[in-house]
């Protein structure tokens, strides 16, 4: 990705909200609307908790915000950038330099070591690498890893890590090079209660340190209280819910 492309896409105006949605509609090919969000704002620096039943479109919304899915109707501004106006390559560059993304599980590239996994975003995005302010990339990866209690595992094969350790590596990768927006899609659902709490502590601490906005999706409403903002997708989404799973799915159980 050329620097010319990324600079334009990722000079988010500081005053603009982290996420601003207006009349956003999205449907998968051949399906009905999954999302129809008339209005939604998320201010910068917030820790936001997004929840909703399985199949309600949480992951879909995150895909739109991350620029992986294309805005079909309405407008979506992320960190001031109008994603609907960017082509796929620019959205990729935008994501690479401004976003950190943590999946539910199996976040890591199996053929890279812990250290290499963490360094990956800075290798993809020159912009993000620049934000290390001249610090050595490998050094920075190690520093983050140590900070997340992974100092002894840097050269491990990632498949030899426990799930909790894997999630911390994913967090380190999402946070390296100080992205402005951190997205986590049920990152704690595979962790036990203790680790969940510790993992959240780490996320909050890192986000506050860099001023990053956190958008955190979870089924687990016991975590909700620790966030500054809580968003129920069903409150902002007007699209008819898609009954993909019985509504009685208990809380906290990974889907």
């Amino acid at each position: 990705m050329s620097t010319a492309v990324s600079t334009e896409a990722q000079t988010p105006s500081a005053g603009s909200p982290a996420i601003a949605v207006r009349d956003l509609r999205f449907r998968y090919p051949g399906g009905a609307d999954v999302l129809h969000i008339p209005e939604f704002h998320l201010q910068r620096g917030q820790h936001a908790f997004l929840y909703g039943p399985s199949g309600s479109g949480k992951t879909t919304l995150l895909g739109l915000v991350a620029g992986v899915l294309e805005v079909q109707q309405g407008s979506l501004h992320v960190l001031g950038a109008d994603l609907g106006a960017l082509n796929a390559a620019r959205r990729d560059a935008f994501r690479a330099s401004n976003l950190g993304y943590i999946f539910q599980m199996f976040n890591l590239i199996a053929y890279l070591s812990v250290e290499e996994n963490i360094m990956l975003p800075c290798q993809v995005s020159p912009e993000r690498r620049r934000r290390l302010n001249g610090a050595d990339l490998r050094e920075e990866a190690r520093r983050l890893a140590r900070h997340l209690g992974l100092g002894d595992y840097l050269h491990r094969n990632v498949l030899q890590l426990s799930v909790g350790q894997q999630q911390r590596v994913a967090a380190a990768r999402a946070m390296i090079g100080a992205p402005s927006l951190l997205i986590a899609d049920e990152p704690t659902s595979a962790l036990d209660y203790d680790h969940r709490g510790r993992f959240l502590d780490l996320l909050f601490e890192r986000c506050d340190a860099t001023g990053a906005t956190l958008l955190f999706v979870s089924h687990d409403q016991t975590l909700m209280g620790r966030f500054q903002t809580q968003v129920a997708l069903s409150d902002i989404n007007r699209a008819a819910p898609q009954p993909t799973q019985p509504p009685s799915a208990p809380n906290g159980q990974a889907g």
Binding site: V68, A88, D92, R95, F103, I109, L120
Partner: peptide, 16 residues
């Protein structure tokens, strides 16, 4: 497929 999704999330385009 998982590996591809991870690489996408990290910022690799489909072309890459």
């Amino acid at each position: 497929r998982r590996e591809m999704a991870i690489l996408r999330a990290v910022g690799l385009g489909q072309g890459k």
